[in-house]
Amino acid sequence: MTLLSVQDLKLEYDGRIILDGVSFDLAQGELKVIMGPSGSGKSTLLRCLNRLATPTGGRVVFEGRDVLGPGVDERALRQRIGFVFQNFALYRHLTALQNVTLALRHLRRMPAAEADERALRQLARMDMQAHAHKYPAQLSGGQKQRVAIARALAMDPAVLFFDEPTSALDPLMSREVVNILHQLRDERVSMLCVTHDLYLARAAGGRVMFLDEGRIHAEGEVDELFGPNADPRVRAFFHQELRQAQTAQPIDAAQPMDQAQPAGPSGPAGLAER
């Protein structure tokens, strides 16, 4: 069943074309990855879907309703979409638990005890119950990420959006994020994930779309997209990312492998060079 359908989505800003007719569907329980270089419009795409940005053309149908039309309750829409931000965007003045209960208390109007109980369940789901009473400044990057996901899950959203979930994390933590994505996928949570991280796009294990200059140039299962018949743009992006990962390598010898797995024969590099 189609949960979210995007049709010919366009966004022009200041005479610049940011999105140039993007179309795709997301099915119930599906995990879909939108991969692309920075500036390709992928973050803006996510923001158009929950109306944090306003597209200039196209249609978005979410849970059977047109999202972009007039008279749509923006805030009700946003409560159906869990959003996990690139830098986590935890509220610094609230503890992990309070970050999770905020929406329950003030949007669901849930009594404190009930909200706490529910939030603790979500934190436990992310293995963070031990840190419930810590403030964001007392958490590591990976822990913040887990709290941010718990916060998004607490409202029982129909879909979870991830905006560059690994970009603020070190490679080891990126693996953790992949594990979380797998866990949620097994729990049949619908997810849309935007990233420029080749490792994540590959390891997430969903269908991958390649977005560049506001257009989707390729879509498919991971191996199709990264395989020998790949779109030239995908190849170009690939090479560039690999080069960056390789030049970054000598600077920090402790984290060479994960970002793009440049040397591994089974990694994306191997596939691309074949």
Binding site: R75, R78, A89, Y91, L102, A103, H106
Partner: peptide, 25 residues
Amino acid sequence: ASEVLAAEAMGLSRFQILRLIEIPQ
């Protein structure tokens, strides 16, 4: 600014964001 954006994405109203996020900080 990203916390304000996150609060918007959550569905909080502008006034709620002011009261619950911006003023306490």
